[in-house]
């Protein structure tokens, strides 16, 4: 009897941890998917934006002595600006010359290496811990399970930011333009939308969301220049959910977070990644377009 309740407690705990981890993946996957939906390429430099966000937060806390709110704001804006600059420098010249998105993909791989190594050279490759600005104390959930305040906070923060994104996309003029552009960028231009400005807005939003993920991930795993590699998980989540679909990115991320944490809780922590990539393989075999993949419904 005691063993059963212990199992239940572990289960609840791991579900909360999974939701928390999944929601952080979702922040990264949604930004990544947003860029994909408009420009139709996988932006592998997305992990770089996350790292920029992490280091910006670290620097603001350590060097400037800012509080966590100011540091987070600087981190979001910083990563957003880096994302916009990356697009202007590396992607805009390409997309103005050709429609072949493969070149964008290759450029993004290059930018990912550039960003990572800029940090190795100028900041150093060692692991850094963010000062204890985000509480990690254990919290009891109605006596049923114990989790950390950090997990709850990251879950709440993700929900807030994803909700804000949803409101932006559904209720504002530029949000509508982004949804239109995700279907047909060229025709969005015909409507009088400044396409370059729109792409910059998309990158800024994606960069800022990645920074939120970056802050939480640097608390969870410490901060180092290769932290951006975790984006591969967000990429898997986006593929499982259906590339280019934002609800898909969120659902895929939650599935992935839960799968990882439940594997860690009941089987073995070392099998986490195996499960993640098995999920990817199964998705690609069974439904390559993902759960919410773009289904073209236009009659022609």
């Amino acid at each position: 009897m005691k063993e059963v309740s212990h199992g239940l407690e572990t289960f609840l705990q791991q579900v909360i941890n999974g939701l928390s981890l999944g929601s952080v993946y979702a922040l990264i996957a949604v930004g990544y998917s947003l860029v994909y939906s408009v420009l139709l390429f996988s932006n592998f430099a997305h992990g770089g934006f996350l790292v920029v966000g992490g280091y910006a937060c670290y620097a603001a806390l350590k060097v400037l002595g800012a509080n966590i709110w100011v540091a987070s704001a600087m981190s979001l804006v910083g990563a957003g600006i880096v994302a916009v600059v990356t697009e202007r420098l590396a992607y805009k010249p390409i997309r103005e010359r050709t429609n072949v998105t493969l070149y964008l993909l290759i450029a993004s791989m290059g930018m990912s290496i550039v960003i990572e190594n800029l940090f190795v050279i100028f900041v150093g490759g060692r692991f850094r811990a963010l000062p204890p600005v985000i509480p990690t104390s254990p919290v009891s959930l109605f006596g049923l399970a114990t989790t950390s305040a950090f997990d709850l906070l990251s879950l709440v923060a993700s929900v807030v930011f994803l909700g804000a994104l949803q409101i932006f996309l559904l209720r504002t003029k530029w949000g509508l333009a982004i949804r239109a552009a995700a279907y047909d960028l060229r025709t969005a231009g015909l409507m009088g939308v400044n396409v370059n400005l729109l792409v910059s807005i998309v990158f800024f939003v994606a960069g800022a969301l990645a920074a939120v993920g970056g802050i939480f991930l640097s608390v969870r795993y410490t901060l180092y220049p290769q932290l951006g590699g975790i984006t591969i998980k967000a990429f898997v989540a986006a593929v499982i959910g259906g590339l280019g679909s934002l609800p898909g990115a969120v659902v895929g991320s939650i599935i992935l977070g839960l799968a990882e944490m439940l594997t860690a809780g009941f089987i073995s922590s070392q099998l986490r990644d195996l499960v993640v990539f098995s999920l990817l393989v199964v998705t690609l075999l069974v439904k390559p377009s993902g759960l919410f993949g773009k289904n073209v419904s236009e009659k022609v």
Binding site: L176, R179, A180, Y183
Partner: peptide, 12 residues
């Protein structure tokens, strides 16, 4: 814009 509603198309 196929995935947008008629009124959203017009608003665009």
């Amino acid at each position: 814009f196929a995935p947008l509603t008629v009124v959203e198309n017009l608003t665009m």
